[in-house]
Write a protein that binds this DNA or RNA. Structure first.
Lengths: 408, 408
DNA sequence: TTGAAAGCGCTACCAT
DNA sequence: ATGGTAGCGCTTTCAA
């Protein structure tokens, strides 16, 4: 940069320092008081006479001083006054995800209670398309073989976010985004996905919940189940999933659910082949439709589908319908999440209810607690890692599931 | 300067500076390189040899250094990497507001495109109930009679938010929150409400839109109209509104709509008394119901209701139904916003469509442009205040409006 | 390429 | 109640 003037050393014309914006010291100088006094006028009204205070405030306004600079205050004070949230997709997609919206509402309630702001941190670097940055990164770290390195290029927004702590929402363990967040040395709360003992975790018992869903279907006589799965690893990929990839799953939530489905099948004496899994690339209705079409189009057509989200389930219902199949007459469908809309689909969706809003509130409270501990434990050394919480989940049976056509 | 031994008081045990967290200098010292080099290793890979770079990164990790501190970077660099959003109510209520959610989605898209984060700033100070802080403030500034002062106590979150600019969503001109935001000396974009020439503004032509809605009803033969209004001033208050309060309205959006309704009535030769206005305290269904009950319970019962939001309209429909009135047989109802749900109410809602998502995107782009200008115009003096945008709106006629029962 | 120095704007601490 | 001083951790000059 070849700016010339800028360091306009000579002309303190209006008491403004070089950058154009006046500073607290400018106001102090103008008034012939100390900087401290001006600072107090803004944040400690009881530390100076009301008369002086209003004099200071008036001068500040006259000079166009907008109050203490937040960045400086934050540097000095060591706290940002904000919590970050990291979502597993573009933020603008996040607003299509009803479960996340509920989560965010709960989180917001907890966070605003504490007078903090909430920072939505975009996952992608500017200009790069969705998975690009992640794949680049993926390959980079494969090359150098540094697990959890992630101190490379991307994710600038995450690395420069001025926050006191971060809520990590549903990220696979091997997502470089997660490694980057962890490397920030701030408290984290992990929601649903990575299972890292050093951070608080808020979840449900995904394995048990999934098992309950599968047991429900098996109890109805179904013997051939199709699973529409969320991503198994950070590297998203659409298609049928074999045992090998399942074993290598890095998305703890997905893995736990698959394990629950399998456990139910095993307990009922079903062969491993009676559960077929198709992985989706995104949690959207079209992806659910695509996966369902694949499952229902193959041989050994399942009589029931277990979707890992209500959105996927809705897509599955659409696919079944397009194939001329009746629900639940020909195919039963179970969702996951119990988002509000799932009560009013046709037929209403049998699904696993979880309390998204409570999850958000819990996550917020965990993070706040961690911040608090961090303050207290300053030099006591031991940062009492808050345990986190496991919230209840339960199967809600509605009209989208019924007896297996083959067992009748 | 009388620094002694680099503040290295006595125990440089693990190369960590006092606060517990290691700093960039600690890493540099450990490695015997300059701080500059470490900094470059993180953000300017091309400025040093790959070998050294990975050495630095490795050491950083070993020491537990989490990368450049965002607050310091932000202070030094003068940019925050985030845009703030200010909503006219508790943030947790914001998630019940479908129009705002759409807005936020659009805003997010624009903002993440630029690689910035989005900061949701809570309006209330911790612990104080909704309107308390505002009323306190209201009275305070009434006392000293400083219009737009607001350099007082509350709104700490807003004043300490580390942001490059702020989107102000639908705030009355006299809301102290707005004055506080304006005093921050950062670019603002005003959405829907305050009309301050010095900031960019994104809106629709509220007056024309409201007028179109009223004309539609008048065209159907309605001669007695009830208006369910949003807040007229920062000081919210439920109840009937007289001409005096209308004249004193400080919420530009509300005022414009009332003006549009009145203009339509006047143009049709209706007496001023044929338009009755009830103001609500919040944009919620129950408030709409409450207002409608008041309007429909009085004498000179209106045959049509003009609600300033779809949520209010939905409440109005409920109220009418409870009073045993048929819609649109006995009463017609018009909403405002055309949120997705309004197409599937019973009956489907006649409403004013506006493009909330586009509004959000526009707001984001205006703010980004303002930031850009600000950089460029640094010393050119003239911050070319971006004009903003006026988006289209149009009436969508559905089943909730029909001919006046009296004109048949 | 690398090193040294000078702050960005603020507030906690020490004095008075 | 008020004034001085020393950094918070970083990056951007300048010089080598």
């Amino acid at each position: 940069m070849d700016r010339i003037g800028e360091a306009d050393d000579r002309n303190p014309r209006r008491g403004a320092s070089r950058k154009g914006r006046p500073t607290l010291r400018d106001v102090a100088r103008e008034l012939g008081v100390s900087a401290q006094t001006v600072s107090n006028a803004f944040r400690r009204p009881d530390q100076l006479s009301p008369a002086l205070r209003s004099e200071v405030l008036r001068t500040a306004r006259r000079l166009g001083y907008g109050g203490p600079d937040p960045a400086a205050k934050s540097l000095r004070g060591g706290r940002a006054g904000a919590l970050g949230v990291l979502y597993n997709d573009r933020l603008s997609h996040a607003f299509d995800d009803p479960a996340f919206m509920l989560f965010l509402r709960g989180l917001t309630a907890a966070v605003e209670q504490a007078g903090l702001s909430l920072l939505l941190i975009p996952a992608e670097s500017p200009g790069s398309v969705d998975s690009d940055a992640r794949q680049m990164h993926d390959e980079a770290s494969r090359g150098t073989r540094r697990p959890g390195a992630a101190a490379d290029r991307p994710f600038a927004a995450l690395r420069t976010a001025v926050v006191d702590g971060i809520v990590v929402y549903s990220l696979p363990d091997d997502d470089p985004l997660y490694a980057t967040a962890a490397s920030r040395n701030r408290p984290l709360v992990l929601v649903d996905s990575p299972r890292d003992r050093s951070f608080a975790r808020v979840t449900i018992d995904d394995e048990a919940a999934a098992r309950a869903a599968a047991e429900h279907l098996i109890g109805l006589g179904h013997r051939q189940l199709g699973v529409i799965a969320l991503e198994l690893t950070a590297r998203r990929r659409f298609g049928p999933v074999e045992a090998e990839r399942i074993a290598a799953a890095t998305n703890a939530m997905t893995a736990a659910r698959l394990s629950g489905y399998a456990a139910a099948a095993r307990a009922a004496g079903l062969a491993p082949e009676s559960v077929t899994v198709v992985e989706t690339e995104a949690n959207t209705e079209p992806e659910g439709e695509r996966a369902a079409r694949m499952l229902l189009g193959g041989d050994a057509r399942p009589t029931a589908l277990l979707a890992m989200s209500d959105r996927l389930a809705v897509g599955a219902i659409a696919a079944a319908r397009e194939l001329g199949l009746d629900i639940p007459g020909d195919v039963s469908v179970v969702g996951f999440d119990n988002v509000p809309a799932s009560a009013s689909t046709t037929p209403p969706l049998t699904t696993v209810d979880q309390q998204h809003e409570a999850k958000g509130r819990q996550a917020g409270e965990c993070l706040l607690a961690a911040l608090h501990d961090g303050d207290a434990a300053d030099d006591s050394g031991t940062a009492a890692a808050t345990a986190g919480a496991e919230l209840p989940a339960r199967l809600v049976v509605r009209g989208s599931t019924g007896p297996s056509p083959r067992s009748r």
